[in-house]
Structure formats: structure tokens, C-alpha cells
Amino acid sequence: MIIGERKPLEEVFDRTSSFNKILVLGCETCVAVCLAGGKKEAEETAEAISLHRKKENQPVEVKAESVQRQCEFEFIDEFKDLMNDYDVVLSLACGVGVQTMVDRYPEKIVLPGLNTTFLGYPLEQGVWMENCQACGDCVLDKTHGICPITRCTKSMLNGPCGGSSEGKCEISGDIEIECGWHLIHERLKALGKLDYMEEVEPPKNWSTSFHGGPRKIVREDVKIVRGE
């Protein structure tokens, strides 16, 4: 799932300071689930903006709304009328949502209110962990379920490097980072498949990843083409 984090309020205030009618638009899917940009956060952010502006003696009209999925044209079309009443949309969806909005409402200014951080999952309530970088050519079968691209800081396919110590990655600073290849090793050991550690992986095809430019999937079997 997409994980995000609300932008620092100062940044939000700064970016919206020249507008007097603001629509804060949350998204009720991924970013709601990671407690960053759902309806509740939208209301909270709107209230913060309103208080800030009051304090600055620059009253503002601000409204909080949220949409099922901000990355779907049909869902955001619902907001057409409302959009006309506001100068700017502060979107609390991920970057995908912001851009979908811009695509649909090219004449509108849509600002991101959220930093889209990674693809991950909740380890427990309030803790999220990145574990996939959408490389487009999944190798989880080889490493038995632990992603070397994400969990290894250097995205090495033939790890670990010499910087792995006591299960920690050498780049660990104040925050300890687990060595992805240590995790893979432990997992392979538990499964009795340690011989994989001896195998040499050939270079990965990174063109399926972002390195090949923005990706697009076209599926003719599901595309609707009228008049054929």
C-alpha cells in the first residue's frame, strides 16, 4: 500500500498563504489507511489552516472533503461544482492523486499536502515499513520473500556487502537499519536453502524499473475501444 506523511504545517501554511478559498481534499483509500490523508486528517488540516489564518488576521474560507480514491477520474468528477468555488485544492492524497486531479482540472491549482513516502505495510498500529520499490521484475521467489532491492540499502542482488555487521547495515546512524541480506540469509537458513547464497545473480534488467523512464501498462484485452 502507498504510505505517506502529512507535510509539515509550516510548509502547508506557506504554500497556501496567497489563497483565500481553500479546499482540503483527502483520499479515503491508501493514505487514509496509513492515517495520513483521510477525512479526519483533512478536517484537522483545514482547522489548522483556519486557525493560522485567524492568527495572521487573514481570514480564509477553508473546507475539508474527501473522496473515495483521488486517482480515479470518475470519483473526482463528483467534485466539479465544489472545485469551482475554491481557488486552490490542497490534496492530501499521494502524488498519484494530486496529478490525477491536475489532469482532470487543468485550470485549477492543486497543491500536495502530503509527502508520498513509500510502498509498505504497517508493522503495528502507528509503525510503517517500506518493503517494495516496484522494480517491475520481482525477484522475491529467489530470496524467499525478502526484497533485496528494498531491504538492502544498496539494492544489491548478490549480497551481503562487507558492511553487514551483527545484522545491521553499515549506513545505520541514529536509526538502526537491518541488513537486508542478513534477513535473507536467516530466512534461507530457516528454510534449509542456504545454497542460494552461493549462486551468482546476473545483472537485473532495470529497464522495467524507473530507470527505463515512467512506466505504462497497456492491456488491449481490457481496453475498451469503441466502434470496432
Binding site: P8, L9, E10, F13, E44, A48, L51, H52, K55
Partner: peptide
């Protein structure tokens, strides 16, 4: 923390 950001 939010209040501080807001300036309160």
C-alpha cells in the same frame, strides 16, 4: 506541536 506551527 501543531499549535506551535500555527503560531499559537
Amino acid at each position: 506541536g501543531m499549535l506551535e506551527n500555527i503560531g499559537i
